[in-house]
Amino acid sequence: MPDNKEIVPPQYDVNAKWDACLDLTVRRFVYSSLAGAFGGLLFFRSPVTRWATVAFGAGVGIGSAYTECSRIFDASRENLASPKIADALAPQGQD
């Protein structure tokens, strides 16, 4: 019995986009938190400022992951737009 799976184009595969976004978010959160912890240990003596640098690094990581994920998901919205809407939104050349 042959496998009759539908092949979904990559720009419409929401599961793959979620997987990529979760992977990206975890990686950037961990790496930027570690960078903040290293910077806090290197530059500050107070535990409060060290934790603040860890929190700042985590925020930067989550923020950059959010920006990248919104770009990934917005690309699919542009592909779903009808040609009439896409033509109306495109900048018009000057004659």
Rank of each mutant, 00 (worst) to 15 (best):
D23K: 03
A20S: 14
P47I: 05
W51N: 15
R28Y: 02
L22P: 02
L22F: 11
S46A: 04
F44Q: 14
T49R: 07
R50Y: 13
A52K: 10
G39K: 03
C21S: 12
R27W: 15
R50I: 10
S46G: 08
T49V: 08
F44C: 11
V54K: 00
P47A: 14
S32C: 05
F43G: 08
V48S: 10
A35R: 01
G36D: 01
S33R: 01
L34S: 15
A52Q: 12
L34M: 04
V48Q: 11
G40S: 05
A55I: 10
T25I: 12
L41C: 06
A55T: 09
F29N: 08
L42I: 15
V54A: 00
D23T: 11
G39P: 02
A37H: 02
S33A: 09
L42N: 04
S33K: 01
V54W: 00
F38S: 14
W51D: 14
L22N: 04
F43T: 09
L22Y: 10
T53G: 03
L24P: 08
R28P: 01
A35D: 06
F38M: 11
F43K: 07
S33V: 01
G39I: 00
A52I: 11
F29P: 01
C21A: 12
G40V: 11
A35G: 10
S46V: 13
V26S: 09
S33F: 01
G39T: 12
R27N: 09
V26M: 09
G36Q: 00
R45N: 05
S32L: 12
S32G: 06
T25S: 09
F29Y: 11
C21H: 12
A37N: 05
W51H: 15
V26K: 13
A37E: 03
T53V: 14
S32W: 07
G40Y: 00
D23W: 04
R50H: 05
R28E: 06
V48P: 10
S33I: 02
T49M: 03
T25Y: 08
G36R: 00
V30S: 11
F44T: 04
F29V: 07
V54C: 00
D23A: 13
T25N: 10
R27Q: 12
Y31M: 11
A35K: 04
R27D: 04
L41I: 07
V54E: 00
V26E: 10
T53D: 04
A37D: 00
F29I: 13
V30W: 05
F38A: 06
G39E: 06
W51C: 06
T53R: 01
V26G: 15
F44Y: 07
S46I: 14
S46F: 04
S33G: 14
L41N: 02
L34T: 10
F43C: 05
L22E: 13
